[in-house]
Design a protein around this nucleic acid. Structure first.
Lengths: 204, 204
DNA sequence: GTCTATAGATGGATAGAC
DNA sequence: GTCTATCCATCTATAGAC
């Protein structure tokens, strides 16, 4: 994968992120060397340091980018769905369904980023960890707000909103351990099956 | 943690496993050195090789031990619970509840082992990976059999038993990300909340 | 069974030429 | 911006003394 010597700032930057993401997801951050990443990109190890001050910053940047994208995508999606429904009761259920389907779709589209965002938390420095945890909590709070609203309106039965939030997200995350596109079930069917379980698990 | 030179076969062996488990869970297999493990145990790195041929075997042994314990404990538990109920319909629901409560309890008692069994799969050699995956599938099949039986008897509604199995296990595993003993909720309460969700998510 | 010492490999990161 | 070369730390695993 050797490349002619010269300047390639525009393509090398993104390529480093792509390959690092893939390798970190496959082997784990600690098990991947800068030389491996460089080799996958087609440059020498030294060249990586034109794009990241060190390995830790590269990991953090990947995780932060993912979490930021996730939050932005959800806020956009939520706004779209919420506008449709009529009364508050239907609206909160529509938001819950929207969250369920959005979460599955978004995460299945980026299995590597999701994997890293969860598995590599312990390899973040203290400050970096705090920052990522804060973004994660923000996302969880989005779902928790829906559940609380549902309880308030009497359309959901949730003994403990915090636990239910984490339980739902954990359940939905499970889809990534087995789903392969082109398999037995379409994405639409998978979303439907999970939405059925989520909805029923909180029935009044 | 220096220790007087001499023979300590009986205590060093288990101590190595305990400390390796803890360190692997905390920092990840690839990020933990044999020297760190040795230091935690109170011996020099060379001494570890009296107990394991290499680092990889140590990881595998920990994971295999955990999975074997899990299966043995469930088989024992299942037999006990199943005997109680009367008709087949009540029996299958009792088994599902038993599985739910057992899974939560067993996993909360060994957070480190569980964490490793899930997170370090990618650091296993090919053969070792196959062996652990086989044990994991065996455990999943135990739950899947319950769900299928429930469907057959008409007491459970499950669009896809395989997916439902993985969804339930994923949801229950989520408890480990937040539960701390001595916290707001007792283990009994937590089990109850999750059982409520599991049961309802499969209601006919 | 544990120690000390070390071989041999590999890691992150930097310096300086082009 | 990338390369080559390299420093220095650290790693796994082994050898041999006790």
């Amino acid at each position: 994968m050797a490349r002619t010597q010269g300047s390639h700032s525009d393509i090398t930057g993104p390529r480093i992120r792509t390959e690092a993401l893939r390798l970190f997801a496959q082997h784990g951050y600690a098990a991947v060397s800068m030389r491996q990443i460089a080799s996958a990109v087609g440059v020498q190890a030294g060249a990586l340091y034109n794009y990241t001050p060190d390995k830790q910053s590269l990991l953090f940047s990947l995780m932060e980018g993912h979490m930021t994208e996730l939050l932005a995508a959800w806020h956009e999606q939520e706004a779209a769905y919420t506008a449709e429904a009529s009364d508050p009761e239907a609206k909160v259920l529509a938001r819950l369904e929207a969250f369920t389907r959005f979460h599955i779709r978004f995460h299945l589209e980026r299995p590597d980023a999701v994997f890293i965002a969860y598995m590599e938390l312990r390899n973040l420095s203290e400050d970096n960890f705090t920052a990522i945890e804060s973004l994660r909590r923000e996302y969880e709070n989005a779902l928790q707000a829906i559940l609380k609203e549902g309880v308030r309106l009497g359309v959901l039965h949730v003994p403990d909103p915090k636990i239910a939030t984490l339980a739902v997200i954990a359940m939905l995350n499970g889809v990534m351990t087995w789903y392969r596109s082109g398999g037995r079930l379409s994405l639409e069917e998978v979303e439907g099956i999970y939405w059925d379980m989520v909805k029923k698990s909180m029935q009044v």
